[in-house]
Structure formats: C-alpha cells, structure tokens
Simulated assay, not measured.
Amino acid sequence: MSDKEYRCDGCGIVIQTEDPSQLGYVPPKVLEEREEVYCRRCFRIRHYNEIAPVEQDPDIYLHKLAEIAETDSLVVQVVDLFDFSGSWIPGIHRHIGKNPLLLLANKIDLFPKSTKWGKLKDWLRKYVKELGIYPVDIILCSAEKGIHMDEALEAIEKYRDRRDVYVVGTTNAGKSTFINRILKEVAELDEIITTSPYPGTTLDAIRIPLDDGKAIIDTPGIVRKDRLSEWVRPTDLHVVIPKQPLNPRIYQLNDQQTLFFGGLARMDYIEGERQSFVCYVSNHLYVHRTKLQNADAFLEKHHGKMLSPPQDPAQLPPWKKHRFFLPGHEKQDIVISGLGWIACGKEKGLVEVWAPKGVQVVVRPAII
C-alpha cells in the first residue's frame, strides 16, 4: 500500500490492507482497480445488508463534536421525531460554540397524516427553548422519502453564508440518509454514504466538497446508551425501529390493567378512571393487554417467546420501575426512549412503567 492515505467513501474510516479482521480493511487490488473505495464492512452492508456492529467509544465522538466550536460554520442537527428526546445531543450549545444551529426534525413520514404540523413545530420550538437552545430555523422533513428536502436545502444555503456545514446527530437519527438525499437531488449521484439501522455506521467525518470550496461534513453519530434501540440485537431492530407510518393503537384501560410492549417494556395502569392510552410504537411490535394481577406470571411464562423481542431476555439489563402521576388537566406522553411513546388521556391517574435499567423513561406534553 502506498503512503497516500485513503478513506472509505461510505463511513469515513482510514483504509488499510493488512488485517482483514480490523476496521477499514480493503483487499489491495481494490485500491488499484476502483476510484470509489468502500471498506469491507461498508461493502457488506451495502450489497448484502449484513449488519456489522462495532465497539464504540462515546467520548471520542463527543471530542470530535467539540472541535466544531473552533470553526466558523453552520451546524445542522438532525433529530429523529419518533425519538426526539433520545436523539437530542445533550449540551449541543457547548459543543458548537457560537456557530448558528439549524434544526432538522427528520422522519415526519412516520407520523399520521392527521398530524397538525404547525402545532408540532411550535411544540419543538418550545421544547428546545426550555433547553436554552435558539435555532436559526426548524425544518420538518423526511430524508428517507424526500419530503421538504427543497426547504431544508434552501435553509442550509441561506444560513451557511459561504461557510462549511457540519451535520451532527445521534446514531440512527438519519444524518447519512439526509446527506445521501442531498447528493441524489442536487448532484444526481446515487447513495454514497453507507447507511444501516445499526448504530455507529459512520465511523469518521466524511467531507463532501461544495462548488465554492467549502464542504458538507457528515460526522459520526453520537452514541446514547439510554435508548432501547441501542440495546436490542441487530436482528430485532426491524421490529423496534419503524419504517412505515405509525398506526396508533388505542386501548381503553381500567385501572389494574397492564400493557406489554413485546418483552422490552411494560406499563401498569395502577389507579384512575377509565381512559384511553394511545400507543405510538413500531407497527411490527407486539402489544399485549392483560390484568395487572396476572402480569408477573404472564411475563415469567412468555418472556422471550410470545413477549419478544428480545429472544433472549438475559441480553437486556433488569427492568427498573418508573412511577408517574397523571395530572388530568392536559394530555401527556410517556416516552420510552428508542421504543416510542404512549399518549395518555385527560383523566387523573397513577402509572408505572417498567423498562431496562438505564433506558430513559420520561413524561412530556403531548406531541400530537
């Protein structure tokens, strides 16, 4: 191999030809025969849909993110609307310094057609304001379906003001899908950046040159281990992460009833008047209703079988209980990060949610 440093066009990692067991490996002939170079891992993901997880050090990616503060650039944060709190980068304002922030709320294609987009945008603006964040603009879009991409591109061109553009986000928020959509619609190129549903596909920064000498930089996804989607095995991700518009499942519950979400989490309605609970989770995820008095025995008998994923319950941390009092004067969502949310009714009540220890479970004002 020559002294010239090659980088994978798919994930950004430095190419090496010596050790097939290590990241970045490419057979020596590939460097001689091809203009575009993809490491073996990216090649297998792209052509065989082979999922290849890697060990990730979250601190390294956060350090790379912090380097943006030393630049003069536009920062575009891509967030996953399906898992907004779980796809938010904590302390983003500290990492990017004085650079302006453009917020792209991705995956609107998963939301019901009846969604009132104006209200949802107001919800987002209020949410980030409470975090002390004031983006230059908020764009609702779908990189996967190409929805509102023209609006996103116009906003980037407007706010970058002839500067570099750093695209940041957590793993699986859709950063690389977004950049591929830009390349397809603007440069008429096929998919360049490797994408997959498994966290950590982009391993290093990928620079895409612009006509004015500046660049769009796709950065590695920030790892958040407080999401259920980070804990399930690759073979179960298609059940947990939605790809089609959500079909809300409505349950009229009396108190002392339980909902199981596969074998990943459960909600017990402990006390309160009969009311509706609307579940916004992947259409492929099995939701089971039973009486609270039977719930423990049902879980013990069916965990990893009828109640799956996971196929092996031992792969997840033990469950932890979270208790919430529903005030009754406004609709609220109970969010299980990486899994979805449960929209509660307007009745007062007491709810307990069980999820693997370390997974974020929070209450927020209703998003829909």
Rank of each mutant, 00 (worst) to 15 (best):
A173D: 02
R160T: 04
I206R: 14
R160L: 01
P209N: 08
L246G: 08
G263Y: 11
T235Y: 14
D204M: 05
P199H: 01
A205F: 06
N172A: 11
N247G: 03
I250L: 14
A155F: 05
L189S: 10
D226C: 04
V223S: 03
G169K: 11
D218C: 04
R227Q: 12
V165E: 12
D212H: 05
G174H: 12
V223Y: 10
D218Q: 05
R227L: 15
K184E: 13
G262K: 14
S176D: 01
L203D: 01
A187N: 08
I241W: 00
M149P: 06
P197S: 07
I217Q: 10
P245M: 10
V223H: 02
A205I: 06
A152M: 10
D255C: 06
I217L: 09
Q252P: 01
I179F: 03
L189N: 11
L237Y: 00
N254D: 12
F261Q: 11
D212F: 09
P245I: 06
F260M: 04
D164Q: 00
D164L: 00
Q244K: 14
S196M: 02
E157P: 00
K225Q: 09
F178W: 12
E151P: 02
M267R: 01
R160G: 04
G213S: 07
T171W: 00
D236A: 13
D164K: 13
T177L: 07
E191C: 05
G221I: 03
A152P: 01
V232F: 13
T171H: 11
R233L: 15
P209I: 11
E151R: 14
